[in-house]
Computed example of a mutant assay.
Amino acid sequence: MSPTLRELRSPDWAAESVPDAVAVLLHGFGSNEHDLASLAPALGLNLPWASLRAPLELGNGGAAWFPIGTPGDPVPGPVEQATDIIWEWVEANLAPATRIVPIGFSQGGLMATQLLRTRPERVLAPVVLGGFVLGAPQPGDDSLRASMPALFWGRGAEDRVIAPVAIGRTTEFLPSHTSLVERVYPGLAHSINSPELDDVRGFLAAEVGAAAVVGA
Protein backbone atom coordinates (compact mmCIF):
# COMPACT_ATOMS: atom_id res chain seq x y z
CA MET A 1 0.00 0.00 0.00
CA SER A 2 1.30 3.47 -0.89
CA PRO A 3 1.94 5.89 1.98
CA THR A 4 -0.65 8.57 2.66
CA LEU A 5 0.88 11.98 2.05
CA ARG A 6 0.73 14.61 4.76
CA GLU A 7 -0.19 18.11 3.68
CA LEU A 8 -0.88 21.69 4.67
CA ARG A 9 -3.99 23.23 3.16
CA SER A 10 -4.93 26.83 2.48
CA PRO A 11 -7.51 28.44 4.78
CA ASP A 12 -9.98 28.68 1.88
CA TRP A 13 -9.68 24.99 0.98
CA ALA A 14 -13.36 24.23 1.67
CA ALA A 15 -14.75 27.54 0.39
CA GLU A 16 -15.65 25.99 -2.97
CA SER A 17 -16.93 22.46 -3.15
CA VAL A 18 -15.48 21.85 -6.61
CA PRO A 19 -12.90 24.52 -7.54
CA ASP A 20 -11.81 24.76 -11.16
CA ALA A 21 -8.14 24.59 -10.15
CA VAL A 22 -6.05 23.89 -7.05
CA ALA A 23 -2.35 24.64 -6.63
CA VAL A 24 -0.21 21.73 -5.43
CA LEU A 25 3.09 22.79 -3.83
CA LEU A 26 5.97 20.29 -4.01
CA HIS A 27 9.08 20.88 -1.91
CA GLY A 28 12.69 19.94 -2.64
CA PHE A 29 15.03 17.29 -1.23
CA GLY A 30 15.46 17.48 2.54
CA SER A 31 12.66 19.97 3.07
CA ASN A 32 9.03 19.47 4.08
CA GLU A 33 5.46 20.63 3.53
CA HIS A 34 6.02 23.87 5.48
CA ASP A 35 8.66 25.15 3.06
CA LEU A 36 6.72 26.09 -0.06
CA ALA A 37 3.63 27.06 1.91
CA SER A 38 5.36 30.44 2.23
CA LEU A 39 5.19 30.81 -1.55
CA ALA A 40 1.41 31.14 -1.45
CA PRO A 41 1.36 34.62 0.14
CA ALA A 42 4.55 35.63 -1.68
CA LEU A 43 2.83 34.88 -4.99
CA GLY A 44 -0.47 36.38 -3.90
CA LEU A 45 -1.96 32.99 -4.71
CA ASN A 46 -5.74 33.26 -4.88
CA LEU A 47 -6.40 29.57 -5.50
CA PRO A 48 -7.01 26.87 -2.92
CA TRP A 49 -3.68 25.17 -2.35
CA ALA A 50 -2.13 22.17 -0.66
CA SER A 51 1.56 21.78 0.19
CA LEU A 52 2.45 18.09 0.18
CA ARG A 53 5.12 16.29 2.20
CA ALA A 54 7.23 13.86 0.19
CA PRO A 55 6.92 10.19 1.21
CA LEU A 56 10.60 9.36 1.84
CA GLU A 57 11.53 10.39 5.40
CA LEU A 58 15.12 11.59 5.84
CA GLY A 59 15.07 12.47 9.54
CA ASN A 60 15.38 15.86 11.26
CA GLY A 61 12.08 16.95 9.74
CA GLY A 62 13.18 16.50 6.13
CA ALA A 63 11.72 14.37 3.36
CA ALA A 64 12.38 13.53 -0.29
CA TRP A 65 10.39 12.40 -3.31
CA PHE A 66 13.08 9.92 -4.36
CA PRO A 67 16.64 8.98 -3.36
CA ILE A 68 19.58 10.82 -4.89
CA GLY A 69 21.88 8.52 -6.86
CA THR A 70 23.72 9.84 -9.89
CA PRO A 71 23.29 13.63 -9.73
CA GLY A 72 20.85 14.81 -12.40
CA ASP A 73 19.99 11.29 -13.50
CA PRO A 74 17.63 9.68 -10.97
CA VAL A 75 16.54 6.06 -11.31
CA PRO A 76 13.11 6.17 -13.02
CA GLY A 77 11.36 3.62 -10.80
CA PRO A 78 11.32 5.59 -7.52
CA VAL A 79 10.40 8.81 -9.36
CA GLU A 80 7.48 7.10 -11.08
CA GLN A 81 6.38 5.56 -7.80
CA ALA A 82 6.37 9.00 -6.17
CA THR A 83 4.35 10.31 -9.13
CA ASP A 84 1.75 7.60 -8.56
CA ILE A 85 1.57 8.50 -4.87
CA ILE A 86 0.82 12.14 -5.69
CA TRP A 87 -1.91 11.07 -8.11
CA GLU A 88 -3.41 8.88 -5.40
CA TRP A 89 -3.55 11.94 -3.15
CA VAL A 90 -5.18 13.97 -5.94
CA GLU A 91 -7.82 11.33 -6.54
CA ALA A 92 -8.57 11.02 -2.83
CA ASN A 93 -8.82 14.77 -2.15
CA LEU A 94 -10.00 16.53 -5.32
CA ALA A 95 -13.02 16.22 -7.54
CA PRO A 96 -12.39 14.74 -11.01
CA ALA A 97 -13.25 18.08 -12.63
CA THR A 98 -10.62 20.02 -10.68
CA ARG A 99 -7.32 20.59 -12.45
CA ILE A 100 -4.06 20.92 -10.55
CA VAL A 101 -1.47 23.67 -10.87
CA PRO A 102 1.79 22.06 -9.70
CA ILE A 103 4.41 24.43 -8.31
CA GLY A 104 7.62 22.63 -7.42
CA PHE A 105 11.17 23.48 -6.38
CA SER A 106 14.22 21.29 -7.17
CA GLN A 107 13.07 17.65 -6.72
CA GLY A 108 9.56 19.05 -6.44
CA GLY A 109 10.08 20.77 -9.78
CA LEU A 110 10.85 17.42 -11.34
CA MET A 111 7.67 16.04 -9.75
CA ALA A 112 5.69 18.92 -11.29
CA THR A 113 6.93 17.84 -14.73
CA GLN A 114 6.08 14.23 -13.88
CA LEU A 115 2.48 15.14 -13.17
CA LEU A 116 2.29 16.90 -16.53
CA ARG A 117 3.98 14.02 -18.36
CA THR A 118 1.70 11.35 -16.89
CA ARG A 119 -1.76 12.98 -16.95
CA PRO A 120 -1.48 16.16 -19.02
CA GLU A 121 -5.25 16.57 -19.25
CA ARG A 122 -5.44 17.04 -15.46
CA VAL A 123 -2.59 19.58 -15.18
CA LEU A 124 -2.71 23.32 -15.78
CA ALA A 125 0.24 25.76 -16.00
CA PRO A 126 2.95 23.85 -14.11
CA VAL A 127 5.70 25.91 -12.50
CA VAL A 128 9.20 24.38 -12.28
CA LEU A 129 11.65 26.25 -10.04
CA GLY A 130 15.24 25.01 -10.10
CA GLY A 131 14.05 21.62 -11.38
CA PHE A 132 14.48 19.36 -14.38
CA VAL A 133 12.86 16.45 -16.25
CA LEU A 134 13.32 12.70 -15.91
CA GLY A 135 15.25 10.99 -18.68
CA ALA A 136 12.80 8.09 -19.12
CA PRO A 137 9.82 8.39 -21.50
CA GLN A 138 6.46 9.00 -19.79
CA PRO A 139 2.89 8.07 -20.82
CA GLY A 140 1.79 11.60 -21.72
CA ASP A 141 4.79 12.68 -23.79
CA ASP A 142 3.15 12.13 -27.18
CA SER A 143 0.06 14.02 -26.05
CA LEU A 144 2.23 16.94 -24.93
CA ARG A 145 3.86 17.16 -28.35
CA ALA A 146 0.40 17.67 -29.81
CA SER A 147 -1.04 20.05 -27.20
CA MET A 148 2.09 22.03 -26.18
CA PRO A 149 0.72 23.31 -22.84
CA ALA A 150 2.22 26.31 -21.11
CA LEU A 151 4.98 25.64 -18.55
CA PHE A 152 7.18 27.99 -16.55
CA TRP A 153 10.80 26.97 -15.91
CA GLY A 154 12.89 29.31 -13.81
CA ARG A 155 16.41 28.70 -12.53
CA GLY A 156 19.44 30.51 -11.21
CA ALA A 157 22.38 31.21 -13.47
CA GLU A 158 24.68 30.27 -10.55
CA ASP A 159 22.82 27.07 -9.59
CA ARG A 160 25.49 24.42 -8.90
CA VAL A 161 23.09 21.88 -7.36
CA ILE A 162 21.31 20.71 -10.51
CA ALA A 163 23.79 18.80 -12.66
CA PRO A 164 24.55 20.16 -16.14
CA VAL A 165 23.35 16.91 -17.72
CA ALA A 166 19.92 17.49 -16.20
CA ILE A 167 19.81 21.09 -17.44
CA GLY A 168 20.80 19.93 -20.91
CA ARG A 169 18.13 17.24 -20.97
CA THR A 170 15.48 19.70 -19.81
CA THR A 171 16.57 22.34 -22.31
CA GLU A 172 16.05 19.77 -25.06
CA PHE A 173 12.78 18.29 -23.81
CA LEU A 174 10.65 21.23 -22.72
CA PRO A 175 10.61 23.31 -25.95
CA SER A 176 9.46 20.26 -27.94
CA HIS A 177 6.71 19.27 -25.49
CA THR A 178 5.47 22.54 -23.97
CA SER A 179 4.90 26.19 -24.75
CA LEU A 180 7.84 27.02 -22.56
CA VAL A 181 8.34 30.22 -20.60
CA GLU A 182 11.98 30.00 -19.51
CA ARG A 183 13.76 32.45 -17.26
CA VAL A 184 17.37 32.33 -16.04
CA TYR A 185 18.20 34.73 -13.19
CA PRO A 186 21.71 36.26 -13.03
CA GLY A 187 23.43 35.84 -9.68
CA LEU A 188 20.85 33.38 -8.35
CA ALA A 189 22.04 30.04 -6.97
CA HIS A 190 19.76 27.11 -6.04
CA SER A 191 17.05 29.32 -4.64
CA ILE A 192 14.09 31.56 -5.51
CA ASN A 193 14.22 35.36 -5.64
CA SER A 194 11.77 38.23 -5.98
CA PRO A 195 12.12 38.67 -9.76
CA GLU A 196 11.31 34.98 -10.20
CA LEU A 197 8.23 35.28 -7.99
CA ASP A 198 7.11 38.27 -10.05
CA ASP A 199 7.50 36.26 -13.24
CA VAL A 200 5.60 33.29 -11.80
CA ARG A 201 2.81 35.60 -10.69
CA GLY A 202 2.51 36.98 -14.22
CA PHE A 203 2.62 33.49 -15.72
CA LEU A 204 -0.18 32.22 -13.48
CA ALA A 205 -2.30 35.28 -14.19
CA ALA A 206 -1.88 34.71 -17.93
CA GLU A 207 -2.40 30.94 -17.95
CA VAL A 208 -4.77 30.25 -15.05
CA GLY A 209 -6.62 33.57 -15.03
CA ALA A 210 -6.22 37.05 -13.59
CA ALA A 211 -8.18 35.99 -10.51
CA ALA A 212 -5.63 33.27 -9.69
CA VAL A 213 -3.20 35.75 -8.13
CA VAL A 214 -3.45 39.08 -6.40
CA GLY A 215 -1.30 41.92 -7.64
CA ALA A 216 -0.16 40.36 -10.92
Rank of each mutant, 00 (worst) to 15 (best):
H27T: 08
A54W: 06
R9F: 09
V200R: 05
L58W: 08
G44P: 10
A50P: 02
G140I: 01
D142A: 15
W89H: 02
P175M: 02
H177M: 02
L43T: 10
G61Y: 03
H34W: 08
R9P: 11
A15G: 08
L174E: 02
P3K: 05
P137V: 11
V208C: 04
F132G: 09
W87R: 11
T4Q: 01
D159I: 00
P164K: 01
P78I: 02
V90E: 00
I192E: 11
A64C: 14
I85S: 00
V128F: 04
V22W: 07
L43W: 05
T118A: 11
N32H: 13
V213Q: 01
A212Q: 14
A37I: 14
G154K: 03
S31V: 15
W87Q: 03
Q81A: 15
L129P: 11
A211F: 05
P120Q: 01
T178K: 10
L56H: 08
P67N: 15
A125V: 05
L56A: 10
E196S: 14
G109K: 04
P76Q: 11
V79H: 03
V101Y: 06
L36P: 11
F152D: 09
R6F: 01
L56G: 00
A15W: 07
S38N: 14
E158M: 08
T170W: 07
T118D: 03
V79L: 05
V101I: 12
H177L: 01
V90N: 03
L39Y: 10
H177Q: 02
E182C: 10
A157T: 12
F203C: 05
A216R: 12
G154D: 13
A211K: 12
V24I: 13
S38L: 15
S106T: 06
M148D: 12
T178A: 12
A14G: 05
A157K: 13
E182G: 05
F173P: 01
S2D: 15
L197T: 11
P11R: 09
P67S: 15
P11Q: 05
I162R: 00
N93G: 07
G108C: 09
I167G: 01
G44W: 07
F29N: 15
A42Q: 15
D159Y: 03
N46D: 14
E182W: 02
A205F: 02
S176D: 13
D12G: 09
P55N: 11
G72Y: 00
A95C: 11
A211Y: 07
E196F: 04
L144V: 12
V213R: 02
P164V: 00
E196R: 11
A21H: 10
L129K: 06
L52D: 06
P137C: 14
S10Q: 13
G62M: 11
E16Q: 15
L144G: 02
E16T: 09
A150Y: 00
L26C: 10
G59M: 05
L197N: 13
A150H: 04
R122Y: 00
W153F: 11
E57N: 05
T171A: 13
D20I: 02
G168H: 00
A21S: 12
D73A: 13
G135Y: 00
D142Y: 01
A189M: 14
S2L: 14
P96F: 14
V161Q: 04
V133H: 04
V181C: 06
P11S: 07
E16W: 02
R201A: 14
R155M: 08
W13P: 03
L52G: 14
E182M: 14
R145I: 08
W13D: 06
A92H: 09
E7V: 15
E172I: 03
P164L: 03
P74G: 12
A64Q: 08
P175K: 04
A206S: 15
